[in-house]
Structure formats: C-alpha cells, structure tokens
Amino acid sequence: MDMDPVFRALADPSRRALLDRLHTENGQTLGELCEGLTMSRQAVSKHLVLLEEANLVAVVWRGREKLHYLNPVPIAEIADRWIGKFERARVKALVDLKRELESDDEKA
C-alpha cells in the first residue's frame, strides 16, 4: 500500500481539523463543513480533494448532495503495518489509560 498520500494529507493542520469535524459529525456536505470555519469554501474544497485522494474521506452521493465521511481504514492499515496482533490490545490499553488520566487532569 502506498502510504505517502495518507501521511501527506495528515501533515496539514487544516485537514486534520476537517477530519476532527467529521469524527464528531459524520456524513456532512461541503456547506455544513464550512460553517464556523475561517477557511474559504474553496480552500475547504481543495483540502477535501486531497483527503479523498488519500482515502481518508469517503464520499456518498445522495441525490445531488455530496456527503463526506471520515474513513478510518487507511489509519488501521498503518497500525496493521507496525502494530502486531497481540500488541494491539496493549497499545489500546495504554491509549485508554492516557485518555482517562488526562480527562481527570482536566476535571481537577
């Protein structure tokens, strides 16, 4: 698998922000994604093309409406390459622990 487009797409903070928005609310139109952003519609549209090319965004057409979905599969493929079957559970436990501890920090 050619991972270069995935890493290139993820290297930009604006594109990561778009993925964050889809992570929160999946299946948005370009118009919905632009709401509340300082980026121009054109810029968002360009970023989405790169995300689509990297397969990090999957598109579903509903009539004339183009819906954008976060596609986490390429990230799973990266994990598959460097994380073994048995390590995955341990890595997940560590990530969960970190999240748990950090959310406690925020509350304190």
Binding site: G27, N55, A58, Y69, N71, E77
Partner: peptide
Amino acid sequence: MRKPDAVFVTFI
C-alpha cells in the same frame, strides 16, 4: 436513499 451513519472504504 437513507443517509449512512458511517462509511468504510478500502482498495484491495
């Protein structure tokens, strides 16, 4: 068509 709640794509 109903809107899917999640979509997963890979090329094989």
